[in-house]
């Protein structure tokens, strides 16, 4: 099992969609943490929101998790089979699942995968 505690491993202030939005962007979180974890084998990947003392916006959640499908070409089934969300706020998990379901691979990510 891979355990990613966002506040400990990444930032206590995740913010924004793109690298240009902040040093703690979803794009960086996805590339540096989620993709390596999901591609490291069949292990479960626990993403833990505990300890983040600010609200995490939809744009961060969509780009980080929906972006796995849209931009990284990770199959939805793989993500859903491995990903475990830990959060006191239930709507983070609900949103993440929705964003993964709604996402479709972009052309570039299809070519990459």
């Amino acid at each position: 099992m891979v355990n990613i505690v966002i506040a400990r491993d990444f930032s206590k202030m995740p913010f924004g969609r793109y690298l240009s939005d902040s040093p703690n962007s979803a794009e960086r979180f996805r590339r540096d943490y989620l993709v390596p974890a999901l591609k490291s084998g069949d292990r479960e990947v626990v993403v833990d929101f505990t300890g983040i003392n600010h609200g995490v916006g939809s744009s961060f959640l969509e780009e980080a998790f929906g972006g796995l499908v849209r931009k990284e070409g990770v199959p939805k089934a793989d993500i859903k089979a491995k990903l475990i969300i830990k959060s006191d706020l239930p709507f983070y998990k609900e949103q993440i699942i929705k964003f993964i379901d709604m996402a479709s691979p972009e052309k570039q990510s299809l070519q990459r995968s």
Binding site: R17, G57, S58, S59, E62, E63, G66, G67, R70, Q95, F99, M102, A103, S104
Partner: peptide, 10 residues
């Protein structure tokens, strides 16, 4: 959403 935007309204 699939265009990478659109859920901030929530």
């Amino acid at each position: 959403v699939n265009a990478g935007r659109g859920n901030g309204s929530e």
